[in-house]
């Protein structure tokens, strides 16, 4: 597992896949993709990294307990969901806006995107957390 080629490759692959994951998550509204898929791709790459480099490097890559990821992700999703309640709208009512960036560019902002990011974080936290926890047991 810990061959040099793989290690070197992982150094390249991990950032790339993470970027790809974010890309997948963000474009998910219009093309195949989305929070789940993004999160899973990221998890796969982090998990591979974890298995290649072991616990210590992993702790450096992810210096927090995965439960923080889960917490933050779920909280994001929760806040997006609850936000409309403040305005007497049903839970999860989506909000969309075309933001004018100034030089002729507009960005289509959908509140569901934040929700999707929350999903992404939860998925990463859970799958990486599980794999990490079990790997530690194996390494013990």
């Amino acid at each position: 597992m810990t061959s040099l080629i793989l290690k070197t490759a992982m150094r390249l692959i991990v950032p790339l896949t993470l970027l790809f994951a974010v890309y997948m998550a963000l474009k998910g509204h219009n093309e195949p993709g989305g929070g789940f898929i993004g999160g899973l791709i990221a998890s796969v790459s982090i998990a591979l990294y974890r298995m290649t480099y072991g616990a210590e490097s992993f702790d450096k890559l992810l210096p927090i307990h995965p439960r923080i990821l889960v917490f933050v992700g779920l909280t994001m999703a929760f806040l997006v969901a609850v936000f409309p309640l403040l305005f007497d709208r049903p839970l999860l009512t989506s909000y969309e806006q075309y933001l004018n960036l100034g030089f002729g560019q507009t960005v289509h902002f959908v509140s569901a995107a934040i929700f999707d990011i929350g999903v992404l974080l939860v998925v990463i936290g859970v799958s990486v957390g599980m794999i990490d926890r079990l790997s530690r047991e194996v390494e013990k």
């Binding site: 969901a81 609850v82 309640l85 709208r89 049903p90 839970l91």
Partner: peptide, 9 residues
């Protein structure tokens, strides 16, 4: 109406 979801929230 909208606040019945508070039971979950």
């Amino acid at each position: 109406n909208n606040f019945i979801i508070l039971f979950c929230v």
